[in-house]
Design a protein around this nucleic acid. Structure first.
Lengths: 345, 345
DNA sequence: TTGTATTATGTAAGCGCTAACATGAGTAAC
DNA sequence: GTTACTCATGTTAGCGCTTACATAATACAA
């Protein structure tokens, strides 16, 4: 912040020959100011390039016109999409949206970024609690409780049902079994699931949906078909390569569900390099429907998670609370050429 | 902001039986407090979940511990990368980074988001002035001048040299001629340039580099090889399709430089659908080296713009000003399989 | 013992606004 | 001409902190 004289409401008032109350009235667009006075004040404001301090205003008023959103990271376009949706909606409503990192939340340095959040006295906070490990769960609930005393909260992502806050959540279990059903209908029986950390609650929910679908179809759960790992392209490539390497050809899966499009893109490459044709020899399905999904070779079947809409909804929920607690977020399968019925038995 | 009693420094002070000055001292970790007193105060703070208001603190101190960055949009991972770099560096330095949209800057609604920026009294602002049209240039310079009276500025992107602020800029002209040289060395003589708006200053700079390289190689500038348009995947696909459709096969370019990887991905698809092999029949080069570039078919040759490093550098520059004004940002060609020497004459 | 550092804590003045209330000039009603 | 009422504008008390300065208590040197 650059300090310069001639930059507060007193300076403007004295230069315009009025009181600070009048300047304040002009600033806030109040009507009870003589047109002549208003012009005089506006002239000085324009001449000096004066802008009132939002900091000082925030102190007297009980709101700051700023919202926050906590996300894991932006390098995955998935989160960039949620952010964009939330951000645009916030702007439309006249709010400034700030982003805070999830990552540092589970830091053990004694310095808790959650406290920084509380200090900022935002008008509301959206927390994406996706990819939350169980071990840091207690810390999370304590943080949430404390934060909620300072600002309204809306939780998004894959939110554990015990968390009693306004929530817009994905039912990842339903989502996983939905994809399974789609594949089972196309005669796939050897279906692999690729990526995600075992302890991650969202991943556990997917696993549940995957296993439920297998059970319903009276298919066995084969542990070599479930590979855990990072959710990156490189990891996706590695995971599929290693899975196939460790399996006799007759047992190779005919379909792969990837945790997200990044993993799917890697799997696509791995399959190509193992000499497999997609989708004739193996179907591959991603998740998140990133911008590049339609442009891979072949174009990737994926799940559209309506991320921008999710972000926007969270903002509206924050600004206009309703009595619902948990709402479900929409998703749908976008069928492209990376998935097809199989003839392999 | 949720208002609740028992939530300011007076409440803590009275409950701990000390003065507000002592609470403030404990909060700021001053040493001149009796261990016993400190414990007493800390207990009350912990019990009440009290966090001092950054708003109030910002009013007395002359800094707010927050930085801002102005970017066009985050849905293009290129900007998400710049943001991530800046964001991480800011966090490392103990600052909160807020993002502001470029888009709304040229809104003509009378409401100028630049003013909102000035009101927020940030400790510094990074402005990405890429993709700036000439017509809004005057408004930009006025805004910058006004803003710079409130906070230090660092400009990044493709910054016109007349702008006299600390700047980290790409020389897109050099960059374009660098790519041209790479292609010319591989015997390409029919090289197309795809995407970007004609009036955009960054694009103009590229065009200059493109033409300079042609001239140097004594090759004619052929206007059908230069197609302007949006910088999206869909536009990339369309632009190449239309270009080829309008040209006799003998005049088809043997190489295409795309404005960015999004456009390149679209071009890749268009080429495939026109029955062209990449790179045997046509080389395609992108820009930005997005995460998906190595995973396209074939993997895409692109220009790595070191976006994260650019963002981080901008933050350091903001926090520790030096006497340099314009610095150049690094870039390098990442050669993959979408580009190769041509045998077509 | 008295005077003087030294240390821990308290008091109070701002920071730049907003908003409730006060003032004072002009106008209308009696 | 006095009273009452508007309306434009001014005065001032916060908002929740930090910080310069004041004060009180103790320690130590003379």
């Amino acid at each position: 912040m650059v300090k310069e004289k001639g930059k507060n409401i007193y300076d403007i008032a004295s230069e315009a020959g009025v009181s600070i109350a009048t300047v304040s009235r002009v600033l806030r667009g109040e009507t009870s100011v003589l047109p002549e006075t208003r012009r005089k004040v506006e002239d000085v404001i324009a001449k000096r390039g004066y802008r009132p301090s939002a900091i000082a205003r925030g102190l007297t008023q009980k709101h700051t016109n700023s919202l926050g959103i906590v996300l894991p990271k932006l390098t995955n376009p998935n989160y960039a999409m949620i952010f964009t949706g939330a951000y645009d909606e916030a702007t439309r409503e006249g709010y400034v949206m700030s982003l805070f990192p999830w990552k540092s939340m589970d830091l053990k340095t004694g310095y808790d970024p959650m406290e920084v959040l509380a200090e900022r006295r935002l008008d509301g906070l959206i927390m994406c609690v996706e990819y939350q490990k169980k071990e840091s769960y207690d810390h999370l609930t304590a943080s949430l409780e404390n934060l909620s005393r300072y600002m309204p909260l809306v939780l998004i992502g894959c939110v554990p049902s015990e968390l009693d806050y306004p929530t817009i959540t994905y039912d990842m279990s339903l989502c996983a079994s939905g994809v399974m059903e789609y594949l089972l209908e196309m005669n796939h029986t050897r279906i692999a699931l690729l990526g995600g950390m075992k302890e991650d609650m969202g991943v556990m929910s997917r696993d549940a949906g995957y296993r439920a679908a297998l059970e319903k179809a009276k298919l066995p759960y084969i542990s070599s078909y479930r590979v855990y790992g990072d959710s990156t392209t490189r990891a996706g490539e590695q995971m599929l390569t290693e899975m196939l390497d460790g399996l006799q050809r007759a047992y190779w899966p005919t379909a792969v569900i990837a945790l997200n499009d990044l993993v799917a893109l890697g799997a696509l490459k791995a399959a190509r390099e193992m000499g497999l044709r997609v989708p004739e020899d193996i179907s591959i399905i991603g998740c998140d429907d990133l911008f590049c999904a339609p442009y891979s070779e072949p174009p990737l079947t994926s799940i559209n998670m309506h991320q921008q809409e999710l972000g926007a909804r969270a903002v509206r929920r924050l600004l206009r609370p309703d009595d619902k607690t948990r709402e479900l977020a929409a998703w749908n399968i976008v069928k492209r050429q990376s998935s097809a019925p199989t003839e392999i038995v």
